[in-house]
Every structure is written in C-alpha cells, then in structure tokens.
C-alpha cells in the first residue's frame, strides 16, 4: 500500500471545484513534484493532502503506516507571520511538535534536531535573531528548517523557493534531493519551476484544474504534456508553462 492514494478526488472552495479527477499515489521514498500554473489547484491539493480540507468527491487515503503527524509541512507564508516576535530558533523547534504528542516540553533530542537542521540550511548564525527582522529568503529558510526537523516520513513543500535568489534556490533543490536520496524521506513538492522538477523529482503530477499527467519523470518527459519542457531539463528555472499545453479548460483564478 502506498503512503498516499488519491482516487477520483476533487477539491474546491465553497462548492467551486478547484481541481478534479485526481488519481495518483505517493510511495515511500518517492520525490513527487506537483507542477502547474497559478490557479491550477496545486495549493488546494496540498490542503487536501494535509487533511485541512476534505475531498468534495473521491477519496484520499493514507497507508503504509503514514500518520498525519508524520508530515512535515512548509506552507506559503501568510501576512500575519511577517511581524511575529519570535526568534528563528523558536520557529524551527516548533517543527518538532508533531513528534511530541501530548508531552509538553521539548527534549534535548528535539533541540539537537532543530540545531542540526539550522546548520544544514546555513541559518545557525541567526538562530537568536527575530523572525520579523530576517530577510524574505532567511524567513523562508527558517520555515524550511522547521519542516526538515519535523523528521517525519513525508515532507510537503509548497513553493519552497519563493523569495530565494537563484543560487539559494538551486542549493535548496539539491538539499531536498539529497535528503530524499540519503535518508529515504518521501518528498512532495509544489512548484511552478518545471525545469528543476524534471531535474530532481522521481515522479511528476501535472495539474490544470484537473489531472493532466501522473507518472515517473522519464515518462513525463516523453508525454505530450511534458515534451514541451524536455529541453529545459538541464537549464535553470524554466518559465511558467503558460498556455503552451494543448489542453482545453484553461482557467485563471
């Protein structure tokens, strides 16, 4: 049984369907990249995977011993957080919460894990700085460090490179790929950077308000939806895949 199985699932807001016809599964050790343009339903799907949102129809099931608390999640930033008085360390260590259960305090191991993931992302020197005084990229890295130190079985990233400069973005992609390869942690990433998706991911899910493609990266590159981007696989960030795919039902929200 796979970690996550989606069967004919649809998600939406207040009766409007944002994304439908989802049939895919995420297995242990996969690196799934969810691609698609703005408004294609990527973030809605993420909410569904996190059980913040129930499917309108169809089902999303967890299996193979995956619990909701095993998911480390990196959200897109909300405005309210930007002026939050917290140190970078306090934010990172809160990633350990899912492993805590009802035990109220962080153990030495939790603190060590937080410090280690800060080292990994190169933000150890700013551990005591105030979150609201960090640059956008540093804030992003802090949130990533939080997701990393959750040390669950599955890491869920929602547009992780937003606000990072190209060098930092590539570093981050490499870091995530290394984590996936070395520790075997399963990765699900939402991205509109198809070039990097093809370069690093093992599986691709292409959305366009419905499921356009799901399969391995090799299959994707040879598929009609993916062919357009095949040449971009080795390059830098590819442009957003706007309007080039021969698919009807285009929608911008």
């Amino acid at each position: 049984m796979a970690f996550i199985t989606c069967q004919d699932a649809s998600f939406g807001y207040e009766g409007n369907i944002a994304v439908s016809g989802l049939n895919f599964e995420v297995r242990r050790g996969d690196y799934l990249c969810v691609v698609g343009e703005n408004g294609s339903g990527k973030s809605t799907l993420i909410k569904g995977l996190l059980h913040l949102k129930n499917p309108i129809e169809g089902s999303v099931r967890m299996g193979d011993g995956l619990q909701p608390s095993d998911i480390g999640y990196l959200p897109q930033q909300t405005v309210a957080q930007k002026d939050f008085p917290a140190s970078a360390y306090e934010v990172v260590v809160s990633g350990r919460l899912s492993a805590r259960g009802i035990r109220p305090f962080y153990s030495r191991r939790d603190k060590a894990a937080a410090n280690e993931s800060m080292e990994r992302l190169g933000i150890a020197p700013i551990r005591n700085r105030c979150y609201r005084e960090l640059s956008g990229g540093q804030q992003q890295r802090t949130l990533i460090a939080r997701a990393l130190c959750a040390e669950g079985k599955l890491l869920l990233f929602d547009e992780p490179v937003t606000g990072l400069d190209p060098v930092a973005a590539q570093e981050l992609y490499r870091l995530i790929e290394r984590m996936n390869r070395e520790t075997g942690v399963t990765v699900v990433m939402v991205s509109h950077d198809i070039g990097s998706a093809v370069k690093y991911a093992s599986h691709i899910l292409h959305l366009k308000t419905k499921q356009v493609f799901f399969g391995t990266t090799a299959e994707y590159v040879n598929s009609p939806a993916g062919k357009i981007f095949a040449g971009d696989g080795e390059g830098g960030p590819a442009g957003p895949p706007t309007g080039e795919i021969p698919e009807e039902g285009e929608r911008n929200v």
């Binding site: 996190l50 917290a86 809160s94």
Partner: peptide, 10 residues
Amino acid sequence: FDENFAKASG
C-alpha cells in the same frame, strides 16, 4: 504562529 502548520502537525 502558524495555525495550518500546527494543524498539520496533529
């Protein structure tokens, strides 16, 4: 700090 994250953490 982040209600969605907390919710996702169980």
